[in-house]
Write a protein that binds this DNA or RNA. Structure first.
Lengths: 242, 242
DNA sequence: CGTCAAGCATTAATCAGACTAATGAGGATC
DNA sequence: GATCCTCATTAGTCTGATTAATGCTTGACG
């Protein structure tokens, strides 16, 4: 799921996976605009130099993501963006790799501002010792990475922290949105880099949040997370939504 | 996407789609517990009476949903629930059809309590005339259906209302969660039926919500939606989360 | 007896080509 | 002009053969 062919991710460059990415990128890049019918299967097989089974499995994947629809006699046609399942793990990472788009970035952050405080509240009510340990570990990694000036590693630990928080909420829906949150954080990091800002100004707040959760203070945890995200919003140059 | 073979949904009973459902149901029902390897492709083809291409496309779909993982020499193994992408449209409807599960239902409702008030707030800021018209139409349908005592139709209109609200928020992430919200509402409706309760006690609140949005009152809209959901929580016998 | 490497067997992944079915277009019929 | 029939196009399905990945067995070696 997380491995592409680009990085030598231990082993096996499956054909259809590569094809899926190729086709998806073509669509994302706009080579095939919405409503456009792409060439017949046999022709595409020729172009891509693969067999029909492999191509069909690739197309199946893209159909399940809402990017394509196939009908006999008509061909395979590209669906408008509105039909895509943008929260799909693959689609999310691809569109991030190409170009997230300002509107999408804003939507992601708005969603974080709503979901993460709620997750913090629930975590304060339900977090298990294991959950707290995961949060502590991530926080320790963040602290260490910042001290070392290793910002990529800091971002990684930051993401781990927020995902651990979602898991601690014990809410299945929130946990399922981990991909979205993780992607949003990765984008935020890249934007910070682009602006030559130092990320991690809110490090101490993360520690305070753990304290709140440990103290079983749902209101405090929720507020702390809101404040944390408000700082992040300023860092990103967003107005914060209010 | 939305059509199954069960209902005569205008035309074409595709083989692999039926197979996907069959396999998914077997897994959901627990015939194949997590970690279990299902029979080799050739054998499964025999059992199901289909060709390998069809079976393979079906398995691809389930792999993309996180339910299966295939490795040469080992076979295709069933993944634990934690690896499944539960917010996937198909998976959501299937697990609802089989058995939602109390924990999952609670998670869905908690997510609604967080997301929908926020969507209401954003709608008050951004709703276009078209969005308002969609809300009005859905509300009118609700009113009419309730007057006629047609509860299934009422539920349908209710879902349309909430989806229109998400769309009016202009937040891509919220819009993408339409499936989840719709499913949650459908479950809520079935639970109400099971308890022999009359749904729709909060009808007037929906109208008030439209008024708030029309008046561009974000705080009022958010509060109204929260109250509306609190009523729904009571109807469902949930404690409401606070 | 334990360790490691080569070969073997199993299974998914891929390829190749034919056949089937759905469906819109265009022509024949009235 | 409208209706029905035929046909061409394209995705869907089937069949079976080949390739590649990988755990397991086996046996050599220490």
């Amino acid at each position: 799921m997380t491995d592409d062919g680009s990085l030598a991710s231990r082993g096996k460059p499956r054909v259809h996976k590569q094809t899926v990415k190729t086709l998806a990128f073509s669509i994302l890049r706009g080579d095939f605009p919405a409503g456009h019918v792409l060439p017949p299967e046999t022709e595409l097989c020729d172009t891509l130099g693969i067999s029909r089974s492999a191509l069909r499995e690739s197309i199946r994947a893209l159909k399940d993501k809402g990017m394509l629809v196939a009908r006999p006699r008509h061909g395979t046609i590209v669906q408008p963006r509105s039909a895509w399942q943008l929260l799909d793990a693959d689609l999310l990472s691809w569109s991030m790799e190409i170009d997230p788009g300002a509107e999408f970035v804003l939507s992601l952050f708005e969603a974080r501002q709503v979901i993460e405080p709620a997750a913090a509240r629930l975590s304060a009510l339900r977090a298990t010792p294991d959950d707290l340990a995961a949060l502590e570990t991530a926080f320790a990694d963040m602290t260490r990475a910042k001290a070392a000036g290793d910002f990529p590693r800091f971002n990684e630990a930051d993401i781990a922290f927020h995902l651990a928080l979602l898991r601690a909420s014990s809410n299945v829906v929130f946990i399922q949105l981990s991909n979205m949150i993780g992607t949003a954080l990765a984008i935020a990091f890249r934007m910070s880099i682009a602006r030559a800002r130092e990320p991690g100004a809110s490090l101490s707040k993360h520690g305070d949040l753990i304290t709140m959760i440990r103290a079983r203070d749902p209101v405090g945890a929720e507020n702390m997370m809101s404040r944390l995200l408000a700082i992040a919003a300023i860092d990103l140059g967003l107005n914060g939504g209010e």
